[in-house]
Computed example of a mutant assay.
Amino acid sequence: MNRITRLFGKNKRDILSVFTTAGYPRLESTGETLAALSDAGIDMVEVGVPFSDPMADGPVIQESSAVALREGMTLPTLLRQVKEVRPRLRDDMPLVLMGYLNPMICYGIERLFSDCKDAGIDAIIVPDLPFDEYIDVFQTLCRQYDLPMIMLITPETEPERIRLIDRECDGFIYMVSSASTTGVRDGFDSTQERYFREISEMNLSHPRMIGFGISNQSTFRMACDYASGAIVGSLFIKYLASESSPRAAVERLLASLGR
């Protein structure tokens, strides 16, 4: 059974998923960072593929991608690093590959699915993947390799589209907290809370995780009130840049979220 299915099948609440850019702050630091997250009990990790034009990412993650690219990070290198470190990680911690479509097409889509499965990846997020392309090309591969494609929804996504995603996709639904890029924010406003409530009241069949703007105990708590948990990215990347080691960055992150 896929690790994501097992994680959400426990009816676990307050799930914490952490995004990290592969190859940041150093090319060979990916394994060390994933091991630190695993040892700290983080529930799920997104491993970001650095890309030159990351349209969904704010300045912090954009800069981490630029650094990782200068360090020499590539998709083949990322998959090698994940495969090497996977035996050291908790077996119940899902790894989600997050990247953009262009590098994946260059790599080869079926080759990507095969190599992700071999490396120990449990799902894929492609923010710029058109839904029709998912249905026509990716859906069969997702189910063949048991690698769900995690789709994003935003406050601008129509209810009919949300129900279509809920029906056609597996894994969980990634709720983007606002119609913007990633980044650290002090809190959520009443409009965002209304959006969280409206999605919760749709009674979708798949679990939901809220991301973008999770940066303190308050935002983490509100996300968990309306979904299975929260995804933290920019805050952790900032700590990776400022702390002496990935383990110190993880400790600071958990303290900031009140965990």
Rank of each mutant, 00 (worst) to 15 (best):
F131D: 00
F131K: 01
D132K: 12
D132A: 15
D132F: 07
E133Y: 05
E133V: 13
E133M: 14
E133K: 13
E133H: 07
Y134K: 03
Y134Q: 03
Y134F: 14
Y134P: 03
Y134L: 04
Y134H: 01
I135F: 08
D136H: 06
D136T: 11
D136S: 14
V137Q: 12
V137C: 06
V137E: 13
V137L: 12
F138L: 10
F138V: 07
Q139W: 03
Q139H: 12
Q139D: 13
Q139A: 13
T140R: 12
L141I: 05
L141F: 11
L141K: 05
C142S: 15
C142H: 04
R143G: 08
R143N: 13
R143W: 07
R143S: 11
Q144K: 15
Q144H: 13
Q144I: 01
Q144L: 10
Y145H: 10
Y145P: 07
Y145D: 06
D146K: 09
D146L: 05
D146Q: 13
L147R: 03
L147C: 03
L147S: 02
L147G: 04
L147A: 03
P148W: 05
P148M: 09
P148R: 11
M149Y: 15
M149D: 02
I150G: 01
M151A: 11
L152W: 00
L152S: 02
I153G: 04
T154I: 08
T154C: 09
P155L: 07
P155W: 07
E156K: 14
T157V: 11
T157H: 10
E158D: 08
E158K: 12
E158L: 11
P159V: 12
P159S: 09
P159N: 12
P159A: 09
P159K: 11
P159I: 10
P159H: 12
E160I: 12
E160D: 14
E160W: 11
E160K: 13
E160M: 08
R161Q: 10
R161F: 03
I162V: 15
I162T: 04
R163E: 07
R163H: 09
R163N: 01
R163Q: 10
L164S: 10
L164T: 14
L164R: 15
L164H: 09
I165G: 05
D166P: 00
D166L: 08
D166V: 03
D166K: 05
D166H: 01
D166E: 04
R167K: 11
R167L: 09
R167P: 00
R167A: 15
E168L: 14
E168M: 14
E168I: 00
E168V: 01
C169F: 04
C169I: 00
C169S: 12
C169R: 00
D170A: 09
G171F: 05
G171E: 08
G171A: 11
G171V: 08
F172G: 02
F172I: 02
F172Y: 15
F172S: 04
I173Y: 01
Y174T: 02
Y174N: 07
Y174P: 06
Y174G: 04
Y174E: 06
M175A: 07
V176M: 12
V176E: 06
V176C: 12
V176R: 02
V176A: 08
S177D: 03
S177N: 06
S177E: 01
S177C: 11
S178K: 14
S178M: 14
S178W: 11
S178R: 15
S178L: 13
A179T: 05
A179N: 13
